[in-house]
Design a protein around this nucleic acid. Sequence first.
DNA 1: ACCTTATCGTGACAGATGTCACAAGCAGGG
DNA 2: CCCTGCTTGTGACATCTGTCACGATAAGGT
Lengths: 207, 207
Amino acid sequence: MSRKISSTGIERLALYYRYLTSVNGSEEAFISSEKLAKAVEHTAAQVRRDLSCFGTFGTPGRGYNRAALEAKLSGILGKEKCRNVVLVGVGNLGSALLAYKGFQSQCYTIVAAFDNDTRKIGKHLKGLEIQDIRKLSAVVSQTRAKMAIISVPADAAQGVVDALILAGIQGILNFAPTRVVVPEDIMLQHVDFSIKLDRLCYELEHA
Amino acid sequence: MSRKISSTGIERLALYYRYLTSVNGSEEAFISSEKLAKAVEHTAAQVRRDLSCFGTFGTPGRGYNRAALEAKLSGILGKEKCRNVVLVGVGNLGSALLAYKGFQSQCYTIVAAFDNDTRKIGKHLKGLEIQDIRKLSAVVSQTRAKMAIISVPADAAQGVVDALILAGIQGILNFAPTRVVVPEDIMLQHVDFSIKLDRLCYELEHA
DNA sequence: ACCTTATCGTGACAGATGTCACAAGCAGGG
DNA sequence: CCCTGCTTGTGACATCTGTCACGATAAGGT
Ligand SMILES: NC(=O)c1ccc[n+]([C@@H]2O[C@H](COP(=O)([O-])OP(=O)(O)OC[C@H]3O[C@@H](n4cnc5c(N)ncnc54)[C@H](O)[C@@H]3O)[C@@H](O)[C@H]2O)c1
Ligand SMILES: NC(=O)c1ccc[n+]([C@@H]2O[C@H](COP(=O)([O-])OP(=O)(O)OC[C@H]3O[C@@H](n4cnc5c(N)ncnc54)[C@H](O)[C@@H]3O)[C@@H](O)[C@H]2O)c1
């Protein structure tokens, strides 16, 4: 309970959680920081430090109770409360995201998809109707979604973000390769492939 | 020249570069750290510090020469030498990546695509033939590609990574939601959407 | 009841990263 | 030619993040 979690620590918590949920059954009831660390490629001390930020629920000599830890992590991450997600921009990437079953297994469900291309609106994809972006506000309040994923072209991103915020969205995952500005109380994360490629490139160069 | 660049600093350099290349023409010949910082949402001091790690090429009172800075950044990131990239796993996500024009504009070209599904092998997508994964080694040496992107299912990731390394690939961008192990001299980057969603979720919870 | 063994939780340290503030330096005008 | 104004580059400082080492503690056997 001693220290505030670091910002990358939060992503490690998510990794721990994913590891726990991925190994299904037929496992020991307890897992040590050492084993957990191995599984996600970090150090045992790091794991303990991260977890200790949220109380003390390991038992010396045994490790952490898997089920309890899983539940605790789910609570910390707040996964129960954020299941519904909306998607804006059903192009190449958006379609892949809609098809992705990995979100499901992590408790997230894309409950609505939007676009502004009249040729796409009304079509069905993976059991979801692509809706007119102008219905955003109504659908967001109806589904009570708090998070949105945007995969629209870079120059449309800021406009879409503004609309999402007006509609009541509080957290946005942005795939467009551009920085957007949001009020302080809105959470924003970027996923930026080409920056990662650049970084890889740099590291190759300066090996 | 005073300090080593931080690891996140490298990603900022890539952002600076992208900003410079995105604003085309009709701009002042010089740009100040202040303006550059605004454009990528960082501080001016941060920009200067990052750039100063690679020598001194700003002029007091004026700022940085755009063209020179762009060239310098390209050199630092090593973009000239890493244009050819191969892709493994042409599913939902892989297809979107193949279609993505943004890599092109950042100097990267996907020169070959591989899969192990016999129904996909031989098909053409965006002017590229999907090839048998068993031809990996031959094609990699022929194209002299140093980087690879993998978008295969999580349980196939490690195998594919091993094959890529055998084939001579030195940097890998991994989209599979799993940690893979590589020798120390191989560079690896993960792009992990659902972890980012989890993080968003956490931040919503603990606003 | 006590001892052994394994593992946790955490204070103290080390290292990495970011911020501030200001002397130094170039450009352009009078 | 010097003065003014702006912007850089960087030492010193502050903060954040990760590592180490070890005392504390629970479980299980003897
Ligand atoms: N395709 C990839 O692999 C990839 C990779 C990295 C980043 N990205 C980024 O993701 C974003 C989407 O990429 P894509 O390849 O799917 O592009 P795309 O052009 O295929 O899809 C964009 C979609 O957004 C819709 N759209 C445009 N403006 C809109 C608006 N104002 N409101 C609602 N919908 C709108 C378009 O109709 C289209 O369906 C882009 O910013 C791209 O740079 C894509
Ligand atoms: N689709 C998404 O939006 C999305 C989002 C996040 C992460 N991911 C991850 O990206 C990866 C790909 O996702 P997807 O939706 O495209 O899956 P997919 O099943 O549509 O595509 C996977 C492709 O990989 C091929 N493949 C399987 N094993 C292979 C092997 N050993 N060698 C070569 N090719 C092989 C398959 O034939 C298939 O074409 C997965 O790990 C997924 O978890 C996808």
